[in-house]
Design a protein around this nucleic acid. Structure first.
Length: 552
RNA sequence: AGCGGGGUGGGGAAGCUAGGUCAUCCCGGCGGGCUCAUAACCCGCAGUCCAGUAGUUCAAAUCUGCUCCCCGCUACCA
C-alpha cells in the first residue's frame, strides 16, 4: 500500500432515489474503506459524481416537463443529501454533466481517435416517427423470436433469458407505435484491439478478485466486440467532430471518466497536482457486479487507449446485489426500501452495521431480512458491543467516581485482556487491507465479546482484589472499540469517545487502538446507552409496507 | 443454452484459494450462574459427521469425477 489513495464508487444515475441496494454493494464499502485509509494516515479521497446523461433521463425529464439539466440537478442534490445523512463522507461529489467532465471526455475521445481506436460505420437503428427519436434497444419492445414471449425488451428476453437477434413485431416503448428503420452513422471504439493487453493487465494485477477475473477472461477469450459509443440524442457529451453533426457519446463512454475529471477538479482546486496524485495513488473503484464489464473491459481499455496517461485501477472491489426478504429489488412492485425512508426509522449506524456484517467480499448476493436486522442489532450491536461499553463506563462512574483507577500487577486474565488490546489494530487491520470488511467487523465484535466475558469473570461488582485492573483494562478496551468502529459507525464511535471524556471527535490514528491510552485518574464524560433496541412491532410494520403500493 | 456461484445441527451464516489442530459463530430450545449493565451479561447441555455417490490420500466439509436440487449473470441494459 502506498501513501495516497483515490476511492470511487459507481456513479448514481440521476433519475431516482438511492435505495438500500445501492449503498450495500458500493457506497458503504467504499466509505468504510476510505475512512479506514484516512485513519491509517493515508491521504485518501473519496470522489463521486452523479451520472447525468442518457436516454432514460432525457425521456423522463420530457415527461415531467423539465429540461434535462433541471432534472438531473434535482437528483444530484437529492442523492448527495441522502448520502450525507447516511454519513457517506465524500470528499467531493460532482456530476458528469459538468463542464470539466465534458471537456475531459472530449479530449479523451480525440486522443483515442488520433490513436486510431475509433472508427465510423453506418448502422440501421429503430426510429420512432411519432416521438422523433432514435430508439436504443431498451426502448423497443416486442415478441421474443426464440420463445414468443410478448412485451420483451429488444436487448433481452426476460422469459427465456436469451438475447433476441431480431425482435418480432417491434413497438416504441414510449408511445407504443411501430418504429421504422433508419440509417445513421455511429462511432465505434475498437475494443477488439485491446483483448491481449486487457488480458495481460488482468493477469498481472494481484489485487483483483479471482472469480471476477476468471469471468472477464472468459469473455475476452470468446472474443471482444467493438463498442458502439454513439447516441442520436441531444442530451450527452457532444462528439467533438464536425462530421458528428450533434450526436453525443454513449453514457458509458463518459461516465467513468468522471472518476478522473472530478478528481482533477477537486485536487487542482486544492492546489494539488491532480494528475500526479492520481498516478501515484492507489486507485479503488467500488462497483456492483452489474457493471463488471464496464469496469474490467471498457474502462481499462480506454485508459490503455490514451497511453495510460492516467493509471489503471489497482482495486475494483466488486460485490453482489442486495435482495429484500430473499426477493429481487423492484421499484415498480414497491419491493425496495429507499435510503431516506430507512433513516426515518433507524440511525445510520444500525444500517451501516447490519449491511457490512452481511456483505462478504465477493459477488455473492446478500439478503436484507427485517427479522435478521432486528436480531443482529439487538443481540450483537446492542447486547454485545453496546452493553459492554455501557457497563464498563457506568461501573466506573458508580464505583470509581468516574475516574480511571490505578492498576496493579496483572493476573493471567488481565494479561490476556491486555494482549487482546495490543493485537487488535493488527488483527482487524489485516482484514481491512484485504477488503474483508465483514470479517473485520466480526473481529471487533469478538473483541467486545471477550471483554464481556472478562468483565463477568472478574466480578468487579464484588469489589475484590483485581477490581481496579478489570476496570482499568475495560475502559481501555472501550477506547479501542471506539477507534476500531470509526470507519464502520462514525457517529457511535465519536459518541463513545465523548463518553470517555476525550475530545468531541476522535483524533487518534488506527494503531492507537492498541495502546492503553486511558491513564489513571482520567475523568470520564457523560455516559448513556449508545443504542436503543429495535422493536418487533415496528419490524412487522416495515415488512407490511413492502410490496404494497403507497400513495403519496 | 452458455458461463459463474452454491447446497454445513430447527433458522441464518462462516470455514473450504494453502486437506489433518473443524465442526465454528449468531438466533432459537433446555438447564444453571450473576446482578455492574438496555430482562442485558456469563456458564453448561441437546442437536449436524458438512446434498448424494464414487474416488485420490496415512488423513477431506476442504481435492477429483458423476448425479440431484437451488441461484445469479449473459456486452451497449448503469
Amino acid at each position: 500500500m502506498g501513501k495516497k489513495a483515490i476511492v470511487t464508487s459507481a456513479l448514481p444515475y440521476a433519475n431516482g432515489e438511492i435505495h438500500l441496494g445501492h449503498i450495500a454493494s458500493t457506497y458503504l464499502p467504499a466509505d468504510v474503506t476510505n475512512r479506514y485509509l484516512k485513519l491509517t494516515g493515508m491521504e485518501s479521497y473519496y470522489v463521486c459524481a452523479s451520472d447525468d446523461f442518457g436516454t432514460p433521463i432525457l425521456i423522463q425529464s420530457e415527461q415531467e416537463g423539465k429540461t434535462p439539466a433541471e432534472y438531473v440537478a434535482h437528483w444530484n442534490k437529492r442523492a448527495l443529501d441522502d448520502f450525507s445523512s447516511f454519513n457517506i463522507g465524500f470528499d467531493y461529489f460532482y456530476r458528469t454533466s459538468s463542464e470539466e467532465n465534458i471537456s475531459f471526455v472530449q479530449d479523451v475521445f480525440k486522443k483515442l481517435n488520433d490513436a486510431g481506436h475509433i472508427y465510423e460505420r453506418e448502422i440501421i437503428q429503430f426510429y420512432c416517427d411519432n416521438d422523433k427519436k432514435f430508439l436504443p434497444d431498451r426502448y423497443v419492445k416486442g415478441s421474443c423470436p426464440h420463445c414468443n414471449a410478448e412485451d420483451q425488451y429488444s436487448d433481452l428476453c426476460e422469459n427465456c433469458g436469451r438475447v433476441p437477434d431480431e425482435i418480432v413485431d417491434p413497438k416504441c416503448a414510449i408511445c407504443g407505435k411501430p418504429p421504422t428503420r433508419k440509417k445513421t452513422n455511429h462511432y465505434f471504439f475498437k475494443l477488439k484491439n485491446f483483448g491481449d493487453s486487457l488480458s495481460r493487465w488482468l493477469d498481472e494485477n494481484q489485487h483483483l478478485q479471482k472469480d471476477v477475473k476468471k469471468y472477464v477472461q472468459n469473455w475476452i477469450r470468446s472474443g471482444l466486440v467493438d463498442w458502439d459509443i454513439t447516441r442520436d440524442i441531444s442530451w450527452g457529451v457532444p462528439i467533438p467532430l464536425d462530421a458528428a453533426n450533434g450526436k453525443v457519446l454513449y453514457g458509458w463512454f463518459d461516465n467513468h471518466l468522471a472518476y478522473i475529471s472530478a478528481t482533477l477538479k477537486f485536487l487542482n482546486d486544492k492546489g494539488i497536482d491532480g494528475k500526479k496524485f492520481w498516478n501515484t495513488a492507489d486507485i479503488y473503484h467500488f462497483i456492483g457486479k452489474d457493471i463488471v464489464y464496464h469496469h474490467y473491459l471498457f474502462l481499462p481499455a480506454m485508459r490503455l487507449g490514451i497511453g495510460s496517461e492516467y493509471k489503471l485501477p489497482d482495486f475494483i472491489p466488486t460485490r453482489g446485489h442486495l435482495t429484500l426478504q430473499a426477493k429481487k429489488i423492484s421499484k415498480s412492485r414497491n419491493w425496495y426500501i429507499g435510503l431516506k425512508e430507512f433513516l426515518q426509522y433507524y440511525p445510520a449506524d444500525y444500517l451501516r452495521y447490519h449491511l457490512v456484517s452481511i456483505n462478504p467480499y465477493s459477488q455473492d448476493d446478500l439478503n436484507f431480512d427485517w427479522d435478521d436486522f432486528a436480531t443482529r442489532i439487538n443481540s450483537e450491536l446492542i447486547g454485545n458491543l453496546g452493553n459492554f461499553v455501557n457497563r464498563a463506563l457506568e461501573f466506573t462512574k458508580k464505583e470509581f467516581d468516574g475516574k480511571v483507577p490505578e492498576y496493579e500487577s496483572f493476573d493471567e486474565k488481565d494479561a490476556e485482556a491486555e494482549q487482546k488490546i495490543r493485537s487488535l489494530a493488527a488483527d482487524v487491520g489485516d482484514l481491512m487491507k484485504q477488503n474483508h470488511l465483514d470479517r473485520a467487523l466480526k473481529k471487533i465484535m469478538e473483541f467486545s465479546s471477550h471483554f464481556n466475558q472478562y468483565f463477568q469473570h472478574k466480578e468487579p461488582w464484588k469489589n475484590g482484589p483485581g477490581t481496579a485492573n478489570c476496570v482499568y483494562l475495560s475502559v481501555n478496551a472501550v477506547r479501542s472499540i471506539s477507534i476500531a468502529i470509526l470507519p464502520f459507525m462514525p457517529e457511535s464511535a465519536n459518541k463513545i469517545w465523548m463518553q470517555l471524556g476525550l475530545d468531541k471527535k476522535i483524533s487518534a490514528k488506527w494503531n492507537d487502538m492498541s495502546v492503553l491510552g486511558m491513564s489513571a485518574n482520567h475523568a470520564l464524560g457523560y455516559t448513556s446507552p449508545l443504542f436503543s433496541k429495535v422493536k418487533s412491532k415496528d419490524i412487522e410494520n416495515h415488512k407490511k409496507r413492502l410490496g404494497t403500493i403507497r400513495t403519496r
